[in-house]
Amino acid sequence: MAFESFADFLAMGKHGFYVWSAYGISAFLIIASMVLALRGQGQVRQTLARQQRRAELDAEVNDESRT
């Protein structure tokens, strides 16, 4: 460990503000991009599943009206 105590670690000399805001903003942007990528995947899957179900229902209705 390069620091004497945890308080020392947080203080980063006198530069705690600069170091921790740099890492905070970076973490936010990286996590946001990962979450958006994951969410996009789920959304496309859901949309396609919904479209497919609707198409299947339409097909059933058509079959019934024919008989």
């Binding site: 670690f9 000399g13 170091v19 740099a22 970076s26």
Partner: peptide
Amino acid sequence: GLVWGLGFAPSDYQQGNSYRIIFIH
């Protein structure tokens, strides 16, 4: 890499600890 850089790497003789931003920059 980040834990090593933030907590264990030595501080810089000129810049002190602000240089630790390097590990993400």
